[in-house]
Design a protein around this nucleic acid. Sequence first.
RNA 1: GCCCAGGUAGCUCAGUGGUAGAGCACCUCCUUGGUAAGGAGGAGGUCGUGAGUUCAAUCCUCAUCCUGGGCUCCA
Length: 664
Amino acid sequence: MHEAAMSAANDLREYLEAEEKLGKKVIAARVDGKVKDLHSAVPEGAETIEPIQAHEDAALAIIRHSTAHVMADAVQRLFPGTKVAFGPATEDGFYYDYDRPGGTFSEDDLAAIEAEMKKIIEADVPFRKEIVERDELKKLLDSMGETYKSEHLDRLEGELSVYRHGDWVDLCEGPHVPSTRFLQAFKLTHVAGAYWRGDERNPMLQRIYGTAFANPKLLKRHLKQIEEAKKRDHRKLGKELELFTFHPWAPASPFFTGRGAAIYNGLVDYVRGLYGRHGYEEIITPQVFDRALFETSGHLPSYGENMFMGATLDGIRDAAEELAKAPEDGPRDAAGCQHVIEEHVRFGVKPMNCPSHCLLFGSQLKSYRELPLRYADFGRLHRYERSGVTQGLTRVRTFAQDDGHIFCTEEQLSAEIGAFIDLVFEVYRDFDFHDVRIAIATRPEDRLGADEVWDKAEAALIAGVEEKDLPYEILEGEGAFYGPKVEFHLKDAIGRPWQLGTIQADFNLPERFDLEYVGADNERHRPVMLHRAVLGSVERFYGVLLEHVGGNFPTWLAPEQLRLVTVSNEFDAYAHEAAAELRKAGVRVTVDDSSERLGSKIRAGRLMRVPYIGVVGGKEAEARGLGVRSRDENKDIGLLTLDQVRDRIQAEALPPSQRATTDE
RNA sequence: GCCCAGGUAGCUCAGUGGUAGAGCACCUCCUUGGUAAGGAGGAGGUCGUGAGUUCAAUCCUCAUCCUGGGCUCCA
């Protein structure tokens, strides 16, 4: 259409200028859907060329990546000899990894780096792309001593390019903003260690994180959002609302208070309620097993690093006696000693319920008429998580899952997967979670079983999800060691995604435990096993939910649904009488009869996020009612009789999906 | 486990090489007040733990435990 203009223009900038589309805030161009630098040539035969404005979503990654380049430049100016590794834009900012000779960065260094970056930005240096020959580039990177970049180059194929701004040069695909002046709003946020190429066998680099936006206003808004999110961090709320606490003698293992446990049990009771309707039977299985169980299941070889193993004092004494005896073939080395000790560490604390469910399944001969057999178990699990990975309630060493294992035939598999997905979405709706992402995690490197078995299991899961017409992504190699997973992810207050629900197809454990059922043909057959959890870990779900609702648990989960506050102690007697009556009707009610002023008591109740506060004074005592304040409506809803209060709270005392939908 | 930063009263946080402070919470008393903080007084800490340097360590050094931010791993 604009062929004349295209051929006349030396680059996209000139073209856009001729078309009068080059505003001051245009940072790049989109050519037939591809993002290009403004200084790149107009491609032959291009059909559409549109400007990208700084405030557009597509611009954000460009701005951030360009800011990362400027940061790396600043770091190398301030800390000569520092090498650079990777520096991409991320979902909410950017980072660049460095190898600083003989040193690390601390957060105190950030201010100086930011100042240096501002100088570069003020100098308004243009970014330029250059296509380079491989050999030449290799020579360049080696001469600069950029060993990481040079190593990375060896893995790249196709056309190679570098970007320069001023004297600074980096192996990079781009695109970038036209010049540093476009980087008007950035902030370096924190430093962290990160392994080269994300592999813990590699050296640890220093990563500096930052974020950048099109303008200072957007940056400020982002920083404010982070502040707001911190206020609803479940660790902070858990302390403020007196829900749970920790002690160094049980690291990463929460203690739930009465209030906290009420919510916890509310979650478990909720799931129990579902089980009745979805054909599960709840079972109870042991906590500690002979290690033979975990050898059979494959946990010890594949998951042993994460297990708590135990011994009795007798066992330890036996081990000591054996070690004290000199073996005939010379003294033992460390590995030999370890072997002796391990032989006497007979017990494993279960990290998962599946092995014990296999034992229970196998304890009686099963008929095909009993399948699908759905076991549910809220058993406590313990996993030794490496220090440094634990976090609040979302990553702990002791937890319960709303765990279940479905034993079924291969033919029943897809129907079971489908029914489970429906169940997950029903549950998440009840908790008002709507942003659910589905991922399918495929076979990991360390796994049990033959590839054909994994083919079958993965195909079953993918078919189950596709049947529901749900979008999903594949996570290669992220499956459990015994089977692939469908994962259901929700985000916490600061946008970090967490895996909660999961369903996993497993053809391996039934084999290892030699599980069988008698089919209609009177022959023995191997069942398939599905591992599944809706909330996932109750602890993790609790944490994510706590942040999601900002501490304002719905009435059906609130540990204290109604708090009565007296206007003066004159009305204490009536308040206790009213509370007793409501309590009989199942309302969780408390009385604040302290001699504080009314305003102070209301404030205390609000801070504890009690859904309803009932004011008790002369009017209320006389009318045998309460002056009710609603947390969620954030107002005084007036004088209600005790019956009305009871009806209102009872109506909210069930999860949404279980409330009566019709009025009589 | 690895890199960085922390750990002072129940909570949130000041602070200093000469053995510690605030606000809230708690306890007692006064106050009985109608919708987000009434007043006064009191109690409470071997400054995470253990070593070291020093005449003297909460403060400096080292180790260790725990917590937080990341990496790796994971529900």
